[in-house]
Structure formats: C-alpha cells, structure tokens
Simulated assay, not measured.
Amino acid sequence: MTGPVMFNDPPVRTEAMLTLFRTVQRRLLLLTAGAAVLGVVVGLLVAGGPGVWGALLAAGLGLVFTFTTVATLRFLAGRGPELLQIVLVGGWLVKMALVVVVMLWLREQTFYHRGVFFGTLVIVLLGAVAIEMYSVATARIPAVEATTGDVSRVTTQPAEGAGTTPADGEPRQDAAREASDGDNEPPTGPSSAA
C-alpha cells in the first residue's frame, strides 16, 4: 500500500477524472454561450445597448467564477489533498475579492442594464450548479485503478470440497473417508451395465 500523496509527489492523473472535468468545462462553456445569447436578445429588446452590455458582463463574470474552479480541479487532479484544499480555498477567496471589486465598480456605472445583468448572472450560476451536480452524479469514476504490476504470481485456491481445508492444508477427514468408501463399493448405475 502506498503512503499519502504529498506536495512534491508527481501527479497521478486518472483519465476518468480528467474526462469528467473536460465534460463539465464543455458544458459550462455551452451554458454560458446560450445564456449570453438569450441575455443579449432579451437585453436588446428590453433596454437596447445597455441590455446587451448587462448580458455580456454577467455571462463573462459567471464564466470566470465557475470555469476557473473546474480548471483548477483539472490541473490538480491526482495531486495531494492538502495542495487541493489550499489552492481551492485560496482561489475561491481571490475570486470572491474579484467579484466584490467588479460589483463595486459596476455599482457606479450606467452603461449596462442591471435587471438584464442580474437575470443573466442568475441563469449562468444556477445552470452551472445544475451542470456540476448532474455531471458528478452521472460520472463513471472507478473506485480502483488498474495498475501494471507483476501478474506472474497468481495463486489458486482449491475448490470447495476438493479434499483440503483452506485454513490448514490438511486433508479433510470426511473427504478422505468418502474416497476410501468409494473404492470398496462396486460401481452402480448405467455405466456399470456396459
């Protein structure tokens, strides 16, 4: 059995995990593009140019917030859990600080429509949560990875009732008795008639 994975250990990249992260990234991109197109159309109809800007800003902010988490997980796949926790928590704090700064800056701006911005952002964030939950729930991640080890050392256990017990390797008394009783009796049945 191997010890814990530490900071300087080489990454073990499981293909199933990387496939999951690629799938989530692709779905997040499609969701954000769809939400941006829908938001731009609705924003254009509702508020003209400011509506378009509101939809684009919300889609961009939502994509940065959700996509970077999955990209970080993909990069850290197979590395130690300590490093994963440090990077995820640190990255989350940086993203929250970025969101606060952007929201404070946007509060004073008038070039975008706030209703379209809020609606598009809610669609992107709720859709991202749904995508991540669905992708993880339907992922096929093996519990045990196949390794290339020495397969020349194969041991076989005797079948049940084969004359030995698995514990001590001594012949079983009832199996030995059956074998000796069977030698003294003449064969019976259809084969004895032939």
Results as ranks from 00 to 15, higher is better:
Ala16Thr: 00
Leu98Ala: 15
Gly34Gln: 09
Phe111Lys: 06
Leu38Ile: 09
Ala97Val: 09
Gly60Tyr: 04
Thr19Arg: 10
Val42Phe: 08
Met103Arg: 03
Val100Lys: 04
Gly119Asn: 07
Thr23Leu: 05
Val70Thr: 15
Thr66Trp: 03
Val94His: 07
Phe65Trp: 10
Val116Gln: 04
Phe75Ile: 03
Gln85Glu: 11
Gly51His: 04
Phe117Gln: 04
Phe111Leu: 11
Ala47Pro: 10
Leu57Met: 08
Arg26Gly: 14
Val101Trp: 14
Leu121Thr: 10
Trp105Lys: 04
Arg27Asn: 11
Leu30Met: 12
Ala130Phe: 13
Gln85Lys: 10
Ala36Trp: 03
Thr66Tyr: 02
Val41Ser: 12
Ala47Ile: 12
Leu73Met: 04
Thr110Pro: 02
Leu126Trp: 11
Phe118Met: 11
Tyr112Val: 09
Arg79Tyr: 01
Leu98Asp: 05
Gly78Arg: 05
Leu18Lys: 06
Phe21Leu: 15
Met17Thr: 00
Leu84Arg: 07
Arg79Ala: 01
Leu38Glu: 02
Gly62Met: 00
Arg27Gln: 15
Ala33Asp: 04
Val124Met: 10
Trp105Asp: 14
Gly78Ile: 02
Thr72Met: 13
Val129Asn: 04
Ala16Tyr: 00
Arg107Asp: 15
Leu57Ser: 01
Val87Asp: 02
Gly119Ile: 01
Arg22Thr: 12
Leu88Ser: 15
Met103Thr: 14
Thr120Arg: 03
Arg107Leu: 13
Met17Cys: 00
Arg79Val: 02
Ile86Arg: 13
Gly78Gln: 09
Leu18Gln: 13
Leu106Cys: 11
Val70Gln: 09
Val101Gln: 06
Leu126Arg: 08
Val52Thr: 12
Ile123Met: 15
Thr68Asn: 04
Phe118Pro: 01
Glu108Gln: 13
Leu84Gln: 08
Arg27Val: 03
Val87Thr: 15
Glu108Cys: 02
Thr23Cys: 05
Trp92Glu: 13
Met96Pro: 02
Gly78Ala: 07
Arg107Ser: 12
Pro81Val: 08
Leu63His: 13
Ile123Ala: 15
Gly91Ser: 10
Leu98Asn: 11
Gly49Asn: 05
Leu76Ile: 05
Gly54Val: 02
Leu57Tyr: 08
Gly90Met: 04
Val129Met: 12
Leu30Glu: 09
Val40Trp: 00
Thr72Asp: 03
Phe67Leu: 06
Gly39Arg: 00
Thr110Tyr: 03
Gly115Gln: 09
Gly43Phe: 09
Ala97Cys: 03
Leu44Asp: 05
Ile86Ala: 06
Met17Ser: 00
Val89Cys: 05
Phe67Asn: 03
Gly48Asn: 14
Phe111Asp: 14
Leu57Phe: 08
Gly115Trp: 10
Leu104Ile: 11
Val52Cys: 10
Thr69Gly: 09
Leu20Thr: 02
Ala47Asp: 14
Leu93Thr: 08
Ala35Gln: 02
Trp53Gly: 10
Leu56Trp: 05
Leu20Gly: 00
Ala58Ser: 11
Leu121Ser: 06
Gly80Gln: 07
Gly39Trp: 04
Val89Phe: 15
Ile131Asp: 00
Leu76Ala: 09
Val122Thr: 12
Arg114Tyr: 06
Ile86Thr: 13
Lys95Gln: 14
Thr72Ser: 13
Ala59Glu: 01
